[in-house]
């Protein structure tokens, strides 16, 4: 039994959730938000999408194996640790530049790493569970 209205709403909702998550991620340094929250919100969007369409559709939607997403998240975070080292500072020191009045720095990069990892982790977990436990029908 397909419910077209639900499917429409959910597909739309996915974009809204991910968009909102990205918004929270970049705003997180000054206002409520941040990598963890944004990651969970985006993942919740995917979870909802998965419940309605099945886990295969989620994997199709994101195109990449969630484990790779997880790994790249970790790598991005590590990069934030390594950049200061290349500049001769202790690892994980914040390095800041200013671009058109907006401060950009490695902590932001680190936050993005956290976000990517959290999304990858939750998506990986629930797609695996749905797949193995046959929740896709």
């Amino acid at each position: 039994m397909r419910n077209i209205v639900l499917e429409r709403i959910v597909s739309l909702f996915l974009y809204v959730m991910v968009g909102f998550a990205l918004f929270l991620l970049f705003r997180g340094h000054n206002r409520p938000g941040g990598g963890f929250i944004a990651g969970i919100i985006a993942a919740a969007g995917f979870l909802l999408y998965g419940i309605v369409f099945g886990s295969e559709k989620v994997l199709e939607k994101i195109r990449v194996n969630p484990r790779y997403i997880m790994g790249s998240g970790l790598l991005i975070a590590l990069l934030a640790a390594l950049i200061p080292m290349m500049l001769g500072k202790p690892p994980l020191t914040g390095v800041w530049t200013s671009l058109a009045g907006i401060a950009l720095g490695t902590p932001l990069l680190f936050d993005i790493g956290v976000f990517v990892l959290v999304v990858g982790m939750i998506v990986s977990i629930f797609t695996n569970i749905m797949d193995v436990l046959k929740w896709n029908s």
Binding site: G28, H29, N30, R31, P32, G33, G34, G35, F36, G94, W96, A103, G105, P107, D111, V114
Partner: peptide, 10 residues
């Protein structure tokens, strides 16, 4: 460079 102290700590 952040006003959200919790996030800056993290």
């Amino acid at each position: 460079h952040g006003r959200n102290i919790v996030n800056v700590i993290l």
